[in-house]
Nucleic acid binder design. Sequence first.
RNA 1: GGUGAGGUGGGUGAGUGGCUCAAACCAGUAGUUUGCUAAACUGCCGUACGGGUUAAACUGUACCGAGGGUUCGAAUCCCUCCCUCACCGCCA
Length: 422
Amino acid sequence: MLQVNVMRNNPQFVKERLAVKNFKQPELVDAIIALDDERKKLQAEFDSLQAKINASSKNIGTLMAAGDTKEAAQLKADVATWKSQLDPVKKQAAETEKKLEETITLLPNLPSERVPKGFSAEDNEVVKQNEVPTLSENALPHWELTKKYKLIDFDLGTKITGSGFPVYTGKGAKLQRSLIQYFLDYNTNAGYKEIIPPFMVNEASAFGTGQLPDKEGQMYFVNEDGFYLIPTSEVPLTNIYRDTIVKQEELPVKMTAYSPCFRREAGSYGKDVRGLNRLHQFEKVEIVQLIEANKSYEALEEMVDHVERLLQLLELPYRILRLCGGDMSFTSALTYDFEVYSAAQKRWLEVSSVSNFESYQSNRLKCRYKDEAGKMQLVHTLNGSSLALPRILACLLENNQTENSIILPEVLHNYFGADVIN
RNA sequence: GGUGAGGUGGGUGAGUGGCUCAAACCAGUAGUUUGCUAAACUGCCGUACGGGUUAAACUGUACCGAGGGUUCGAAUCCCUCCCUCACCGCCA
């Protein structure tokens, strides 16, 4: 969440930035500042009353020890008076603080200056785009190919669980595993520490990275235990550092993890959910960084290059988008999306989203470090997919199909144990 | 799931109502000294929100798992919840 001081220092700037995200309630900025003023005032009142009570209580102790019960009784009466004044202040302060917290939580992160204005995916800025391949007339979409080579059984998944929970079988399962392993190796070679996190998180974690309250209905929830199934391993990974003061020399923290990701995807339909395009459970390898504020955009570029190189190694046609204000996530300050071209479907599919959250997450997480001057600073958090599996798989199958085989990119040969599926 | 024991500052760990604005030790840090891949000694060494300052100094309040309660006063007593550990049961 945003810091009140940022709003206080330049409310106009904050409102302008929020407008880029098409945020409709700029007046909340003023409301927050007013609530914060109120909070300060109430706290000052509370503090001075409490100070008097503390001092008198101490005196009562001394007087009692000296046997001066009369004087002590007088002080007790004073304390009783102050306490009766204190209670309403305390209550009001708690209410103000709660209201303040709730209101701040409504504000999305501020987009960085490089974020283009816009309302939807149409307005995203294409930073780079490969030439798209064309396939022969009788080329098959991936949902036919997975059937043809017995790689994925969608119907079986529907039987066992429901739609959007595919079953990978035989070479399909092995290819999936090969990709996961390859991605993890690629990431760890670049200095990311491998982690296997929990696949369910508690409410505090879901709030910490901003899934709550914004995406409440998008996560699967285990009511009995109060746990959420993770929509991405960003959540458990970043929350490793919740309520932590990191040593500056440990920065940047770089982590990578494979995990299944669970998303309810309520409201999706049609060609968007066909085959591997959009699932309720999918596999993903994630990268996360925590870094000092002045280095976070450098880190973002590094992560973008990292993901781009991976796509090149997979020999897939891709493009890079800089998301516009309207298409970015609630918590992000700047996001690059990577899309690969699905040649049989003739459409681009998102396979990675690399974002800098600046201090929006860390302010909720309370993840800080001490700078050279000994002052506490919020870290900046970043994450990205490296990579999401299903759509990569879809494109590999579609783009590399021949009459009776699928040719795999060279980097996968050793992992998969063959250079072709047939 | 059952029974028992616990949750204190970066770590270990004292502390059963006021002298604890949490002891001591370890780690960390700054310095002193000693002819030196190190030791000894001394100081400093939590976080949050306020006030104060150019910045400090200084200063108020809160925080000993969380939330309530008793009391003039709570780490300490009471209640509820959460979590951890041990053993038993069940189980990959």
